[in-house]
Design a protein around this nucleic acid. Structure first.
Length: 291
DNA sequence: CGTGTTTGACCTGCGC
DNA sequence: GCGCAGGTCAAACACG
């Protein structure tokens, strides 16, 4: 028997680079590390700026809510019986922040949805409840709005103000979820569905609504082909984005998304960013040359 | 058979 | 107290 001896040992001898090349590599590493450190610092600074902006926004929203609460209370004391008058008065209590109409209760509404929501300020549901009005293009005669949640229809009614029937839905994602939704065609434009959300989901999957609102705001910012006048812009944006007591985390998430989108869509910002980065790179290369 | 929709009846709140 | 309108219930029905 002839045993064949195969050399299985690994050759760990690596051709070491010359000392000059090795030094160069070390210098590049140091530059990279320094660059990474600078970027981290800048990232941290930007994060702090963003968080400061969010804090300022929350403070302003608190003040706005307090003012609206005060106005609403005084008016309900003065005219508790005149429902229509109340609803019209409450219509003037919108707070508009960068295209977002934040309302304190459901009595606030505008233009073509006036006939749908004429409720007095005192008919506010539980303080924890939030209401979001979503306006959706209706592709068919159905009263179904695809918003990512699972809904179970429990009733339908023809209201006096609007000949088209109003459908009532409950959230069926969770058995104990108290959220309800009313869907009705717009009085002025039957091709548009108006969905009114009431309550707060006690389960996950909140991204659906936020992302939908986000897309609608984005559409209004970009200037959709359907929008032909400022009034229409307001009609498209305002009813779609009435947010009442939405969880702050959702608002923050939404704001961050909008900021990021706005920044990335801004050619000036991207150009400035590109020049800054290229400037940094050129600085480093010139420094390297000096070394 | 389970789940969801339809639809008439019923309940509730408000104005007169 | 009555009538009206909005909201909800629940039995019947449809569908996979």
């Amino acid at each position: 028997m002839e045993s064949t001896c195969v050399d299985t040992s690994l050759n760990l001898n690596i051709n070491h680079p010359s000392t000059a090349t090795y030094k160069k590599i070390c210098e590049q590493d140091e530059i990279m590390v320094e660059e990474l450190h600078r970027l981290n610092c800048e990232n941290k600074r930007l994060s702090e700026t963003l968080s400061n902006m969010c804090e300022n926004y929350e403070a302003m929203q608190k003040q706005l809510n307090q003012l609206m609460n005060q106005n609403c209370e005084t008016q309900t004391h003065e005219e508790s019986r005149k429902r229509k008058a109340e609803s019209e008065d409450c219509n003037n209590m919108f707070g508009t922040i960068k295209g977002i109409n934040v309302i304190n209760n459901e009595c606030s509404t505008t233009t073509d949805e006036e006939s749908l929501i004429k409720r007095p300020c005192r008919e506010i549901s539980s303080p924890k409840a939030y209401k979001v009005l979503v306006k959706t293009e209706a592709s068919s005669n159905s009263l179904y709005v695809m918003d990512g949640y699972q809904w179970r229809k429990y009733g339908q009614k023809v209201t006096r103000d609007n000949p088209s029937p109003r459908a009532y839905f409950r959230c069926s994602n969770a058995p104990s979820c108290p959220v309800k939704k009313k869907v009705q065609k717009s009085l002025e434009d039957p091709t548009i569905l108006v969905a009114t959300y009431e309550g707060e989901h006690n389960h996950g999957h909140e991204k659906a609504e936020i992302s939908m609102i986000s897309s609608q705001i984005e559409e209004s910012f970009i200037g959709s082909v359907h929008v032909t006048s400022p009034k229409q812009i307001m009609q498209r944006t305002s009813p779609s984005m009435k947010i009442d007591n939405v969880p702050k985390s959702s608002i923050q998430q939404f704001l961050v998304q909008q900021m990021a989108t706005s920044l990335t869509n801004d050619p000036n910002f991207t150009a400035a960013l590109a020049s800054a980065i290229s400037g940094r790179i050129l600085d480093h290369t010139s420094n390297k040359a000096n070394w």
